[in-house]
Nucleic acid binder design. Sequence first.
DNA 1: CGCCAGATTGACACGGCTCAAGCGGTGTGG
DNA 2: CCACACCGCTTGAGCCGTGTCAATCTGGCG
Lengths: 280, 280
Amino acid sequence: MASAQTAASATNVATLKATRLWLSAGLEPADRDALVRECGDVRAVRAGTPLLREGAKTDVLHVLLDGWAARYTVMADGSRFISALALPGDVCDLDALRFDQLNYGVTMLSAGTVIVLPRKRVDELLTSHPAIARALWSLALAENTILTTWTASIARRSAQGRLAHLLCELLLRLQVVGKATGNSYDFPMTQEHLADALGLTPVHINRTLQSLRSTGAITLQNRRVTICNWEALRGLCNFNPRYLHLETVHTEFARTLSSTRSLGSESLPPPSRPKLVLKI
Amino acid sequence: MASAQTAASATNVATLKATRLWLSAGLEPADRDALVRECGDVRAVRAGTPLLREGAKTDVLHVLLDGWAARYTVMADGSRFISALALPGDVCDLDALRFDQLNYGVTMLSAGTVIVLPRKRVDELLTSHPAIARALWSLALAENTILTTWTASIARRSAQGRLAHLLCELLLRLQVVGKATGNSYDFPMTQEHLADALGLTPVHINRTLQSLRSTGAITLQNRRVTICNWEALRGLCNFNPRYLHLETVHTEFARTLSSTRSLGSESLPPPSRPKLVLKI
DNA sequence: CGCCAGATTGACACGGCTCAAGCGGTGTGG
DNA sequence: CCACACCGCTTGAGCCGTGTCAATCTGGCG
Protein backbone atom coordinates (compact mmCIF):
# COMPACT_ATOMS: atom_id res chain seq x y z
CA MET A 1 0.00 0.00 0.00
CA ALA A 2 2.45 2.56 1.25
CA SER A 3 4.99 1.58 -1.33
CA ALA A 4 2.41 1.75 -4.07
CA GLN A 5 1.51 5.16 -2.82
CA THR A 6 5.03 6.49 -2.95
CA ALA A 7 5.63 4.86 -6.29
CA ALA A 8 2.64 6.61 -7.70
CA SER A 9 3.82 9.83 -6.18
CA ALA A 10 7.26 9.45 -7.69
CA THR A 11 5.74 8.85 -11.08
CA ASN A 12 3.74 12.00 -10.68
CA VAL A 13 6.71 14.14 -10.04
CA ALA A 14 8.69 12.63 -12.86
CA THR A 15 5.89 12.89 -15.36
CA LEU A 16 4.59 16.21 -14.25
CA LYS A 17 7.98 17.62 -15.00
CA ALA A 18 7.22 16.98 -18.60
CA THR A 19 3.92 18.76 -18.60
CA ARG A 20 3.13 22.19 -19.81
CA LEU A 21 1.41 22.99 -16.60
CA TRP A 22 4.63 22.23 -14.91
CA LEU A 23 6.95 24.03 -17.22
CA SER A 24 4.84 26.96 -18.14
CA ALA A 25 5.25 29.07 -15.09
CA GLY A 26 8.54 28.05 -13.57
CA LEU A 27 6.96 27.13 -10.30
CA GLU A 28 8.93 27.49 -7.12
CA PRO A 29 9.76 24.26 -5.32
CA ALA A 30 7.23 25.13 -2.64
CA ASP A 31 4.53 25.60 -5.22
CA ARG A 32 5.50 22.48 -7.01
CA ASP A 33 5.25 20.50 -3.82
CA ALA A 34 1.88 22.00 -3.11
CA LEU A 35 0.67 20.95 -6.50
CA VAL A 36 2.09 17.49 -6.27
CA ARG A 37 0.61 17.00 -2.85
CA GLU A 38 -2.76 17.56 -4.44
CA CYS A 39 -2.26 14.78 -6.88
CA GLY A 40 -3.83 12.21 -4.66
CA ASP A 41 -5.90 10.56 -7.30
CA VAL A 42 -3.93 9.25 -10.24
CA ARG A 43 -5.76 6.85 -12.51
CA ALA A 44 -4.53 4.66 -15.30
CA VAL A 45 -7.16 4.59 -18.01
CA ARG A 46 -7.67 2.60 -21.17
CA ALA A 47 -8.42 3.88 -24.62
CA GLY A 48 -12.06 4.80 -24.89
CA THR A 49 -12.50 5.56 -21.23
CA PRO A 50 -14.85 8.48 -20.79
CA LEU A 51 -13.45 11.11 -18.45
CA LEU A 52 -16.53 13.24 -18.59
CA ARG A 53 -19.88 12.61 -20.18
CA GLU A 54 -21.70 15.24 -22.15
CA GLY A 55 -23.98 17.31 -20.04
CA ALA A 56 -22.97 15.58 -16.84
CA LYS A 57 -22.26 17.53 -13.67
CA THR A 58 -18.62 17.79 -12.65
CA ASP A 59 -16.60 19.02 -9.78
CA VAL A 60 -13.16 17.78 -10.79
CA LEU A 61 -10.49 18.70 -13.28
CA HIS A 62 -8.58 16.08 -15.25
CA VAL A 63 -4.92 16.64 -15.96
CA LEU A 64 -3.43 14.32 -18.54
CA LEU A 65 -0.13 12.81 -17.52
CA ASP A 66 0.08 10.48 -20.45
CA GLY A 67 -1.98 9.61 -23.48
CA TRP A 68 -4.37 11.56 -25.65
CA ALA A 69 -7.90 12.68 -24.88
CA ALA A 70 -10.55 14.30 -27.05
CA ARG A 71 -13.07 16.94 -26.12
CA TYR A 72 -16.17 16.38 -28.19
CA THR A 73 -19.70 17.53 -28.79
CA VAL A 74 -22.54 15.63 -30.37
CA MET A 75 -24.76 17.78 -32.52
CA ALA A 76 -28.50 17.43 -32.69
CA ASP A 77 -28.38 15.49 -35.95
CA GLY A 78 -26.09 12.94 -34.37
CA SER A 79 -22.89 14.08 -36.02
CA ARG A 80 -19.93 14.54 -33.77
CA PHE A 81 -17.33 17.24 -33.47
CA ILE A 82 -14.00 17.10 -31.67
CA SER A 83 -13.24 20.57 -30.43
CA ALA A 84 -9.88 19.93 -28.83
CA LEU A 85 -7.21 17.34 -28.33
CA ALA A 86 -5.62 17.08 -24.91
CA LEU A 87 -2.04 15.87 -24.92
CA PRO A 88 0.17 14.99 -21.97
CA GLY A 89 0.37 17.99 -19.70
CA ASP A 90 -2.95 19.46 -20.78
CA VAL A 91 -5.98 19.99 -18.62
CA CYS A 92 -8.87 18.18 -20.26
CA ASP A 93 -11.71 20.19 -18.83
CA LEU A 94 -10.54 23.52 -17.50
CA ASP A 95 -14.04 24.96 -17.65
CA ALA A 96 -14.93 22.80 -14.69
CA LEU A 97 -12.97 25.28 -12.62
CA ARG A 98 -15.98 27.58 -12.78
CA PHE A 99 -18.90 25.75 -14.32
CA ASP A 100 -20.42 22.59 -12.97
CA GLN A 101 -21.92 21.51 -16.23
CA LEU A 102 -19.87 21.61 -19.41
CA ASN A 103 -21.14 21.51 -22.94
CA TYR A 104 -18.76 18.85 -24.06
CA GLY A 105 -17.65 15.37 -23.17
CA VAL A 106 -14.11 14.09 -22.79
CA THR A 107 -12.87 10.66 -23.70
CA MET A 108 -9.51 8.95 -23.92
CA LEU A 109 -8.23 8.34 -27.44
CA SER A 110 -5.45 6.13 -26.15
CA ALA A 111 -4.48 4.47 -22.94
CA GLY A 112 -2.97 6.88 -20.47
CA THR A 113 -2.95 8.24 -16.96
CA VAL A 114 -4.78 11.20 -15.53
CA ILE A 115 -4.72 13.18 -12.34
CA VAL A 116 -8.14 13.92 -10.95
CA LEU A 117 -8.20 17.19 -9.04
CA PRO A 118 -11.24 18.38 -7.13
CA ARG A 119 -12.28 21.77 -8.39
CA LYS A 120 -12.38 23.10 -4.89
CA ARG A 121 -8.77 22.30 -4.22
CA VAL A 122 -7.62 23.87 -7.42
CA ASP A 123 -9.59 26.91 -6.50
CA GLU A 124 -7.85 27.11 -3.16
CA LEU A 125 -4.45 26.66 -4.77
CA LEU A 126 -5.26 29.51 -7.09
CA THR A 127 -5.46 31.96 -4.24
CA SER A 128 -2.82 30.48 -2.00
CA HIS A 129 -0.20 29.99 -4.71
CA PRO A 130 -0.01 32.84 -7.18
CA ALA A 131 2.52 31.02 -9.33
CA ILE A 132 0.05 28.22 -9.88
CA ALA A 133 -2.58 30.77 -10.74
CA ARG A 134 -0.24 32.25 -13.29
CA ALA A 135 0.49 28.85 -14.76
CA LEU A 136 -3.17 28.07 -15.12
CA TRP A 137 -3.88 31.41 -16.71
CA SER A 138 -1.22 30.79 -19.29
CA LEU A 139 -2.65 27.39 -19.97
CA ALA A 140 -6.18 28.69 -20.33
CA LEU A 141 -5.19 31.52 -22.63
CA ALA A 142 -2.94 29.32 -24.72
CA GLU A 143 -5.81 26.88 -25.10
CA ASN A 144 -8.00 29.71 -26.23
CA THR A 145 -5.50 30.69 -28.86
CA ILE A 146 -5.18 27.17 -30.13
CA LEU A 147 -8.93 26.93 -30.39
CA THR A 148 -9.09 30.17 -32.30
CA THR A 149 -6.52 28.98 -34.79
CA TRP A 150 -8.28 25.67 -35.11
CA THR A 151 -11.51 27.43 -35.90
CA ALA A 152 -9.91 29.63 -38.52
CA SER A 153 -8.44 26.53 -40.07
CA ILE A 154 -11.80 24.84 -40.36
CA ALA A 155 -13.48 27.98 -41.60
CA ARG A 156 -10.98 28.99 -44.23
CA ARG A 157 -8.67 26.17 -45.22
CA SER A 158 -9.09 23.31 -47.67
CA ALA A 159 -9.20 19.76 -46.43
CA GLN A 160 -5.52 19.31 -47.19
CA GLY A 161 -4.62 22.52 -45.44
CA ARG A 162 -6.55 21.55 -42.33
CA LEU A 163 -4.92 18.18 -42.11
CA ALA A 164 -1.46 19.57 -42.69
CA HIS A 165 -2.01 22.23 -40.07
CA LEU A 166 -3.19 19.76 -37.48
CA LEU A 167 -0.24 17.48 -38.06
CA CYS A 168 2.17 20.39 -37.75
CA GLU A 169 0.57 21.58 -34.55
CA LEU A 170 0.63 18.14 -33.02
CA LEU A 171 4.30 17.68 -33.81
CA LEU A 172 5.28 20.84 -31.98
CA ARG A 173 2.99 20.27 -29.04
CA LEU A 174 4.26 16.75 -28.63
CA GLN A 175 7.89 17.78 -28.96
CA VAL A 176 7.43 20.24 -26.16
CA VAL A 177 6.36 17.52 -23.78
CA GLY A 178 8.91 15.05 -25.05
CA LYS A 179 6.42 12.76 -26.74
CA ALA A 180 7.83 13.02 -30.23
CA THR A 181 10.98 11.40 -31.43
CA GLY A 182 12.50 13.56 -34.10
CA ASN A 183 9.80 14.26 -36.63
CA SER A 184 7.49 11.44 -35.76
CA TYR A 185 4.98 10.64 -33.10
CA ASP A 186 2.49 8.00 -32.05
CA PHE A 187 -0.92 8.85 -33.35
CA PRO A 188 -3.91 7.17 -31.74
CA MET A 189 -6.61 8.83 -33.83
CA THR A 190 -8.64 6.95 -36.41
CA GLN A 191 -9.64 8.54 -39.67
CA GLU A 192 -13.08 9.01 -38.23
CA HIS A 193 -11.62 10.95 -35.32
CA LEU A 194 -9.70 13.10 -37.74
CA ALA A 195 -12.86 13.76 -39.68
CA ASP A 196 -14.66 14.84 -36.54
CA ALA A 197 -11.79 17.09 -35.53
CA LEU A 198 -11.52 18.82 -38.88
CA GLY A 199 -15.15 19.10 -39.85
CA LEU A 200 -14.91 16.61 -42.70
CA THR A 201 -16.11 13.10 -43.44
CA PRO A 202 -14.06 9.96 -42.92
CA VAL A 203 -14.16 9.21 -46.61
CA HIS A 204 -12.74 12.56 -47.49
CA ILE A 205 -10.09 12.30 -44.79
CA ASN A 206 -9.02 9.08 -46.37
CA ARG A 207 -8.56 10.66 -49.76
CA THR A 208 -6.88 13.71 -48.34
CA LEU A 209 -4.46 11.57 -46.38
CA GLN A 210 -3.58 9.76 -49.55
CA SER A 211 -2.87 12.96 -51.37
CA LEU A 212 -0.70 14.14 -48.48
CA ARG A 213 1.20 10.87 -48.50
CA SER A 214 1.65 11.03 -52.25
CA THR A 215 3.47 14.33 -51.93
CA GLY A 216 5.97 12.60 -49.68
CA ALA A 217 5.38 15.12 -46.92
CA ILE A 218 4.15 12.63 -44.38
CA THR A 219 3.82 9.00 -43.53
CA LEU A 220 1.07 7.49 -41.40
CA GLN A 221 1.14 3.82 -40.67
CA ASN A 222 0.74 1.61 -37.66
CA ARG A 223 -0.72 4.50 -35.70
CA ARG A 224 2.40 6.57 -36.14
CA VAL A 225 2.91 9.82 -38.01
CA THR A 226 6.21 10.83 -39.51
CA ILE A 227 6.73 14.22 -41.03
CA CYS A 228 9.13 13.41 -43.84
CA ASN A 229 9.25 16.90 -45.26
CA TRP A 230 8.53 19.58 -42.75
CA GLU A 231 9.02 22.43 -45.15
CA ALA A 232 6.60 20.95 -47.63
CA LEU A 233 3.97 20.26 -44.99
CA ARG A 234 4.37 23.69 -43.52
CA GLY A 235 4.02 25.22 -46.95
CA LEU A 236 0.70 23.50 -47.49
CA CYS A 237 -0.91 25.37 -44.63
CA ASN A 238 1.38 28.32 -43.99
CA PHE A 239 1.89 27.00 -40.52
CA ASN A 240 3.13 29.66 -38.13
CA PRO A 241 3.81 28.29 -34.66
CA ARG A 242 3.66 31.62 -32.94
CA TYR A 243 0.11 30.97 -31.77
CA LEU A 244 1.25 28.07 -29.65
CA HIS A 245 3.23 30.44 -27.47
CA LEU A 246 5.83 27.80 -26.99
CA GLU A 247 8.41 30.30 -25.82
CA THR A 248 6.21 31.00 -22.87
CA VAL A 249 6.04 27.35 -22.23
CA HIS A 250 9.34 25.87 -23.15
CA THR A 251 12.50 26.92 -24.88
CA GLU A 252 14.25 23.70 -25.55
CA PHE A 253 12.95 23.18 -29.04
CA ALA A 254 14.15 26.42 -30.48
CA ARG A 255 15.88 24.39 -33.13
CA THR A 256 12.78 23.11 -34.77
CA LEU A 257 11.14 26.43 -34.38
CA SER A 258 13.93 28.59 -35.61
CA SER A 259 13.51 27.35 -39.13
CA THR A 260 9.87 28.23 -38.93
CA ARG A 261 9.97 31.24 -36.71
CA SER A 262 11.52 33.36 -39.42
CA LEU A 263 8.09 33.26 -40.96
CA GLY A 264 6.90 35.84 -38.46
CA SER A 265 3.90 37.90 -39.38
CA GLU A 266 6.03 40.72 -40.63
CA SER A 267 8.17 38.79 -43.04
CA LEU A 268 5.48 36.82 -44.81
CA PRO A 269 6.59 36.47 -48.38
CA PRO A 270 4.11 38.11 -50.70
CA PRO A 271 1.64 35.25 -51.12
CA SER A 272 -0.55 34.64 -54.07
CA ARG A 273 -2.57 37.78 -54.51
CA PRO A 274 -5.04 38.39 -51.71
CA LYS A 275 -8.51 37.52 -52.77
CA LEU A 276 -10.24 40.05 -50.60
CA VAL A 277 -9.46 43.63 -50.05
CA LEU A 278 -8.49 43.80 -46.42
CA LYS A 279 -10.32 46.53 -44.73
CA ILE A 280 -12.51 45.94 -41.80
CA MET B 1 -10.77 69.00 -16.90
CA ALA B 2 -11.74 67.83 -13.50
CA SER B 3 -15.40 67.81 -14.39
CA ALA B 4 -14.70 65.90 -17.59
CA GLN B 5 -12.79 63.44 -15.48
CA THR B 6 -15.62 62.87 -13.06
CA ALA B 7 -18.15 62.75 -15.87
CA ALA B 8 -16.16 60.03 -17.55
CA SER B 9 -15.90 58.22 -14.26
CA ALA B 10 -19.63 58.43 -13.68
CA THR B 11 -20.26 57.02 -17.11
CA ASN B 12 -17.93 54.19 -16.32
CA VAL B 13 -19.77 53.20 -13.25
CA ALA B 14 -23.13 53.43 -14.92
CA THR B 15 -22.08 51.50 -17.97
CA LEU B 16 -19.89 49.03 -16.23
CA LYS B 17 -22.90 48.02 -14.25
CA ALA B 18 -24.26 46.65 -17.44
CA THR B 19 -21.23 44.60 -18.28
CA ARG B 20 -20.71 40.95 -17.80
CA LEU B 21 -17.40 41.58 -16.13
CA TRP B 22 -19.23 43.63 -13.61
CA LEU B 23 -22.14 41.38 -13.00
CA SER B 24 -20.50 38.05 -13.30
CA ALA B 25 -18.86 37.80 -9.96
CA GLY B 26 -20.93 39.95 -7.67
CA LEU B 27 -17.99 42.11 -6.74
CA GLU B 28 -17.88 43.72 -3.35
CA PRO B 29 -18.09 47.49 -3.34
CA ALA B 30 -14.42 47.70 -2.43
CA ASP B 31 -13.49 45.56 -5.39
CA ARG B 32 -15.75 47.48 -7.67
CA ASP B 33 -14.14 50.73 -6.66
CA ALA B 34 -10.72 49.26 -7.18
CA LEU B 35 -11.70 48.24 -10.67
CA VAL B 36 -13.31 51.53 -11.51
CA ARG B 37 -10.31 53.43 -10.22
CA GLU B 38 -8.28 51.61 -12.80
CA CYS B 39 -10.44 52.82 -15.60
CA GLY B 40 -8.39 55.90 -16.19
CA ASP B 41 -8.36 55.64 -19.91
CA VAL B 42 -11.77 55.60 -21.50
CA ARG B 43 -11.84 56.22 -25.22
CA ALA B 44 -14.71 56.91 -27.56
CA VAL B 45 -13.96 55.20 -30.85
CA ARG B 46 -15.54 55.24 -34.27
CA ALA B 47 -16.56 52.32 -36.40
CA GLY B 48 -13.55 50.84 -38.06
CA THR B 49 -11.10 51.95 -35.41
CA PRO B 50 -8.45 49.29 -34.92
CA LEU B 51 -7.96 48.44 -31.26
CA LEU B 52 -5.12 46.06 -31.92
CA ARG B 53 -3.31 45.28 -35.13
CA GLU B 54 -2.43 41.77 -36.12
CA GLY B 55 0.94 40.69 -34.88
CA ALA B 56 1.54 43.93 -33.01
CA LYS B 57 2.94 43.94 -29.50
CA THR B 58 0.50 44.81 -26.73
CA ASP B 59 0.56 45.51 -23.07
CA VAL B 60 -3.03 46.62 -22.55
CA LEU B 61 -6.46 45.01 -22.37
CA HIS B 62 -9.49 46.55 -24.00
CA VAL B 63 -12.84 46.30 -22.25
CA LEU B 64 -15.82 47.23 -24.37
CA LEU B 65 -18.25 49.55 -22.66
CA ASP B 66 -20.36 50.10 -25.70
CA GLY B 67 -20.42 49.02 -29.33
CA TRP B 68 -19.26 45.89 -31.11
CA ALA B 69 -15.75 44.77 -31.91
CA ALA B 70 -14.44 41.89 -33.99
CA ARG B 71 -11.43 39.70 -33.38
CA TYR B 72 -10.05 38.67 -36.74
CA THR B 73 -7.25 36.83 -38.45
CA VAL B 74 -6.03 37.24 -41.98
CA MET B 75 -4.99 33.98 -43.57
CA ALA B 76 -2.03 33.61 -45.85
CA ASP B 77 -4.17 33.67 -48.98
CA GLY B 78 -5.64 36.99 -47.96
CA SER B 79 -8.99 35.69 -46.81
CA ARG B 80 -10.20 36.88 -43.48
CA PHE B 81 -11.77 35.13 -40.54
CA ILE B 82 -13.60 36.67 -37.60
CA SER B 83 -13.02 34.45 -34.61
CA ALA B 84 -15.07 36.31 -32.06
CA LEU B 85 -17.43 39.18 -31.58
CA ALA B 86 -16.97 41.36 -28.53
CA LEU B 87 -20.14 42.95 -27.23
CA PRO B 88 -20.53 45.52 -24.46
CA GLY B 89 -19.00 44.11 -21.32
CA ASP B 90 -16.61 41.82 -23.09
CA VAL B 91 -12.85 41.95 -22.97
CA CYS B 92 -11.60 42.22 -26.53
CA ASP B 93 -8.16 40.77 -26.07
CA LEU B 94 -7.90 38.79 -22.87
CA ASP B 95 -4.84 36.93 -24.12
CA ALA B 96 -2.86 40.11 -23.65
CA LEU B 97 -2.99 39.33 -19.95
CA ARG B 98 -0.21 36.82 -20.52
CA PHE B 99 1.12 37.16 -24.05
CA ASP B 100 2.59 40.28 -25.52
CA GLN B 101 1.92 39.34 -29.08
CA LEU B 102 -1.46 38.00 -30.12
CA ASN B 103 -2.31 36.13 -33.24
CA TYR B 104 -5.32 38.20 -34.07
CA GLY B 105 -6.31 41.80 -34.61
CA VAL B 106 -9.26 43.62 -33.08
CA THR B 107 -11.31 46.29 -34.75
CA MET B 108 -14.48 48.18 -33.96
CA LEU B 109 -17.51 47.14 -35.99
CA SER B 110 -19.49 50.09 -34.74
CA ALA B 111 -18.83 53.27 -32.86
CA GLY B 112 -18.42 52.69 -29.16
CA THR B 113 -16.35 53.27 -26.06
CA VAL B 114 -13.58 51.18 -24.59
CA ILE B 115 -11.61 51.08 -21.39
CA VAL B 116 -7.91 50.60 -21.90
CA LEU B 117 -6.34 48.75 -19.00
CA PRO B 118 -2.58 48.22 -18.72
CA ARG B 119 -1.85 44.54 -18.45
CA LYS B 120 0.32 45.15 -15.44
CA ARG B 121 -2.46 46.73 -13.46
CA VAL B 122 -4.87 43.97 -14.25
CA ASP B 123 -2.25 41.53 -13.16
CA GLU B 124 -1.89 43.29 -9.84
CA LEU B 125 -5.65 43.42 -9.36
CA LEU B 126 -5.77 39.72 -9.96
CA THR B 127 -3.70 39.00 -6.89
CA SER B 128 -4.93 41.82 -4.69
CA HIS B 129 -8.63 41.31 -5.41
CA PRO B 130 -9.66 37.66 -5.54
CA ALA B 131 -13.19 38.55 -6.57
CA ILE B 132 -11.88 40.26 -9.68
CA ALA B 133 -9.75 37.25 -10.40
CA ARG B 134 -12.81 35.08 -10.15
CA ALA B 135 -14.76 37.35 -12.46
CA LEU B 136 -12.03 37.27 -15.05
CA TRP B 137 -11.75 33.50 -14.85
CA SER B 138 -15.45 33.18 -15.50
CA LEU B 139 -15.15 35.51 -18.43
CA ALA B 140 -12.21 33.66 -19.89
CA LEU B 141 -13.82 30.27 -19.52
CA ALA B 142 -17.15 31.46 -20.87
CA GLU B 143 -15.35 32.88 -23.85
CA ASN B 144 -13.70 29.56 -24.37
CA THR B 145 -17.03 27.82 -24.37
CA ILE B 146 -18.52 30.24 -26.82
CA LEU B 147 -15.58 29.73 -29.11
CA THR B 148 -15.96 25.97 -28.88
CA THR B 149 -19.61 26.17 -29.81
CA TRP B 150 -18.83 28.55 -32.62
CA THR B 151 -16.28 26.14 -34.01
CA ALA B 152 -18.66 23.23 -33.85
CA SER B 153 -21.20 25.31 -35.68
CA ILE B 154 -18.83 26.08 -38.50
CA ALA B 155 -17.60 22.53 -38.67
CA ARG B 156 -20.92 20.76 -38.66
CA ARG B 157 -23.82 23.02 -39.51
CA SER B 158 -25.21 24.16 -42.83
CA ALA B 159 -25.02 27.80 -43.82
CA GLN B 160 -28.56 28.36 -42.63
CA GLY B 161 -27.86 26.65 -39.32
CA ARG B 162 -24.76 28.73 -38.71
CA LEU B 163 -26.55 31.98 -39.39
CA ALA B 164 -29.50 31.04 -37.25
CA HIS B 165 -27.23 29.99 -34.41
CA LEU B 166 -25.26 33.21 -34.49
CA LEU B 167 -28.40 35.33 -34.46
CA CYS B 168 -29.77 33.38 -31.51
CA GLU B 169 -26.55 33.71 -29.57
CA LEU B 170 -26.31 37.42 -30.21
CA LEU B 171 -29.86 37.99 -29.03
CA LEU B 172 -29.20 36.37 -25.68
CA ARG B 173 -25.82 37.95 -25.17
CA LEU B 174 -27.22 41.36 -25.97
CA GLN B 175 -30.25 40.89 -23.75
CA VAL B 176 -27.97 40.11 -20.84
CA VAL B 177 -26.25 43.45 -21.14
CA GLY B 178 -29.42 45.33 -21.89
CA LYS B 179 -28.62 46.04 -25.51
CA ALA B 180 -31.61 44.30 -27.02
CA THR B 181 -35.15 45.57 -26.97
CA GLY B 182 -37.48 42.65 -26.91
CA ASN B 183 -36.49 40.37 -29.73
CA SER B 184 -34.53 42.82 -31.78
CA TYR B 185 -31.16 44.46 -31.69
CA ASP B 186 -28.94 46.83 -33.62
CA PHE B 187 -26.68 44.92 -35.90
CA PRO B 188 -23.59 46.69 -37.23
CA MET B 189 -22.20 43.80 -39.27
CA THR B 190 -22.19 43.80 -43.06
CA GLN B 191 -22.83 40.64 -45.01
CA GLU B 192 -19.11 40.44 -45.63
CA HIS B 193 -18.49 40.45 -41.88
CA LEU B 194 -21.05 37.72 -41.46
CA ALA B 195 -19.33 35.70 -44.14
CA ASP B 196 -15.99 36.06 -42.40
CA ALA B 197 -17.50 35.10 -39.07
CA LEU B 198 -19.25 32.01 -40.35
CA GLY B 199 -16.67 30.71 -42.80
CA LEU B 200 -18.79 31.42 -45.86
CA THR B 201 -18.73 33.87 -48.76
CA PRO B 202 -20.65 37.14 -48.88
CA VAL B 203 -22.65 35.92 -51.84
CA HIS B 204 -23.77 32.86 -50.03
CA ILE B 205 -24.58 34.84 -46.90
CA ASN B 206 -26.83 36.97 -49.01
CA ARG B 207 -28.74 33.99 -50.30
CA THR B 208 -28.92 32.36 -46.91
CA LEU B 209 -30.24 35.53 -45.35
CA GLN B 210 -32.94 35.64 -47.97
CA SER B 211 -33.99 32.12 -47.23
CA LEU B 212 -34.07 32.89 -43.51
CA ARG B 213 -36.18 35.95 -44.15
CA SER B 214 -38.51 34.04 -46.38
CA THR B 215 -39.35 31.67 -43.55
CA GLY B 216 -40.50 34.66 -41.56
CA ALA B 217 -38.15 33.80 -38.72
CA ILE B 218 -36.17 37.02 -38.88
CA THR B 219 -36.01 40.46 -40.29
CA LEU B 220 -32.82 42.37 -41.04
CA GLN B 221 -33.06 45.89 -42.34
CA ASN B 222 -31.46 49.21 -41.59
CA ARG B 223 -28.78 47.49 -39.56
CA ARG B 224 -31.26 45.99 -37.19
CA VAL B 225 -32.17 42.38 -36.57
CA THR B 226 -35.56 41.29 -35.34
CA ILE B 227 -36.29 37.73 -34.42
CA CYS B 228 -39.88 37.39 -35.48
CA ASN B 229 -40.22 33.74 -34.65
CA TRP B 230 -37.84 32.59 -31.96
CA GLU B 231 -39.07 29.04 -31.92
CA ALA B 232 -38.62 28.68 -35.64
CA LEU B 233 -35.15 30.18 -35.58
CA ARG B 234 -34.15 28.05 -32.65
CA GLY B 235 -35.44 24.98 -34.42
CA LEU B 236 -33.25 25.65 -37.41
CA CYS B 237 -30.08 25.24 -35.38
CA ASN B 238 -31.18 23.40 -32.25
CA PHE B 239 -29.99 26.32 -30.25
CA ASN B 240 -29.30 25.44 -26.66
CA PRO B 241 -28.24 28.45 -24.60
CA ARG B 242 -26.67 26.46 -21.82
CA TYR B 243 -23.19 27.00 -23.22
CA LEU B 244 -23.46 30.74 -22.63
CA HIS B 245 -23.56 30.10 -18.88
CA LEU B 246 -25.88 33.02 -18.48
CA GLU B 247 -26.99 31.89 -15.04
CA THR B 248 -23.46 32.38 -13.84
CA VAL B 249 -23.49 35.80 -15.33
CA HIS B 250 -26.96 37.15 -14.92
CA THR B 251 -30.34 35.95 -13.84
CA GLU B 252 -32.64 38.68 -14.96
CA PHE B 253 -33.55 37.18 -18.27
CA ALA B 254 -34.86 33.94 -17.01
CA ARG B 255 -38.02 34.65 -18.91
CA THR B 256 -36.50 34.42 -22.32
CA LEU B 257 -34.46 31.48 -21.27
CA SER B 258 -37.15 29.54 -19.59
CA SER B 259 -38.87 28.80 -22.85
CA THR B 260 -35.62 27.53 -24.23
CA ARG B 261 -34.09 26.03 -21.15
CA SER B 262 -36.53 23.19 -21.19
CA LEU B 263 -34.50 21.96 -24.10
CA GLY B 264 -31.77 20.84 -21.72
CA SER B 265 -29.44 18.12 -22.85
CA GLU B 266 -31.49 15.46 -21.16
CA SER B 267 -34.82 16.29 -22.69
CA LEU B 268 -33.78 16.65 -26.30
CA PRO B 269 -36.65 15.36 -28.35
CA PRO B 270 -35.56 12.37 -30.42
CA PRO B 271 -34.07 14.17 -33.42
CA SER B 272 -33.90 12.83 -36.92
CA ARG B 273 -31.99 9.60 -36.61
CA PRO B 274 -28.32 10.05 -35.82
CA LYS B 275 -26.18 9.68 -38.90
CA LEU B 276 -23.20 8.27 -37.10
CA VAL B 277 -23.03 5.62 -34.51
CA LEU B 278 -21.85 7.41 -31.45
CA LYS B 279 -18.99 5.63 -29.91
CA ILE B 280 -15.68 7.20 -29.38
C1' DC C 1 -25.63 64.77 -59.49
C1' DG C 2 -22.10 61.48 -59.12
C1' DC C 3 -19.77 58.28 -56.32
C1' DC C 4 -19.20 54.29 -53.55
C1' DA C 5 -19.94 50.66 -50.36
C1' DG C 6 -22.91 47.20 -49.72
C1' DA C 7 -26.60 44.23 -51.34
C1' DT C 8 -28.42 41.33 -55.08
C1' DT C 9 -28.69 38.26 -58.95
C1' DG C 10 -27.36 34.79 -62.49
C1' DA C 11 -24.56 31.15 -64.55
C1' DC C 12 -21.41 27.87 -63.79
C1' DA C 13 -17.56 25.20 -61.47
C1' DC C 14 -15.87 22.29 -57.92
C1' DG C 15 -14.66 20.50 -53.30
C1' DG C 16 -16.43 17.66 -50.30
C1' DC C 17 -20.53 14.59 -49.14
C1' DT C 18 -23.35 10.41 -49.71
C1' DC C 19 -24.17 5.85 -50.60
C1' DA C 20 -22.46 1.54 -51.30
C1' DA C 21 -19.30 -2.13 -51.87
C1' DG C 22 -15.09 -4.43 -50.84
C1' DC C 23 -10.73 -5.37 -48.28
C1' DG C 24 -7.52 -6.59 -44.53
C1' DG C 25 -6.12 -7.24 -39.96
C1' DT C 26 -7.20 -8.94 -35.41
C1' DG C 27 -9.56 -10.66 -31.59
C1' DT C 28 -12.53 -14.36 -30.06
C1' DG C 29 -15.27 -18.41 -29.45
C1' DG C 30 -15.98 -23.07 -30.94
C1' DC D 1 -6.47 -23.63 -35.32
C1' DC D 2 -10.08 -22.26 -37.99
C1' DA D 3 -14.18 -19.31 -38.84
C1' DC D 4 -16.51 -15.66 -38.05
C1' DA D 5 -17.31 -10.90 -36.84
C1' DC D 6 -16.02 -6.47 -36.46
C1' DC D 7 -13.60 -2.38 -37.03
C1' DG D 8 -11.05 0.63 -39.66
C1' DC D 9 -9.40 1.60 -44.19
C1' DT D 10 -10.16 2.00 -49.37
C1' DT D 11 -12.37 2.83 -53.60
C1' DG D 12 -15.94 4.25 -57.05
C1' DA D 13 -19.83 6.95 -58.86
C1' DG D 14 -22.79 10.58 -58.68
C1' DC D 15 -24.84 14.54 -56.34
C1' DC D 16 -25.24 18.97 -54.02
C1' DG D 17 -24.02 22.89 -51.14
C1' DT D 18 -21.16 26.45 -51.50
C1' DG D 19 -17.63 29.07 -54.10
C1' DT D 20 -16.40 31.95 -58.14
C1' DC D 21 -16.90 35.47 -61.38
C1' DA D 22 -19.13 39.19 -63.05
C1' DA D 23 -22.76 42.35 -63.69
C1' DT D 24 -26.33 45.24 -61.80
C1' DC D 25 -28.94 47.60 -58.38
C1' DT D 26 -29.65 50.64 -54.29
C1' DG D 27 -29.27 54.04 -50.79
C1' DG D 28 -26.54 57.32 -48.44
C1' DC D 29 -23.49 61.05 -48.77
C1' DG D 30 -20.34 64.73 -50.44
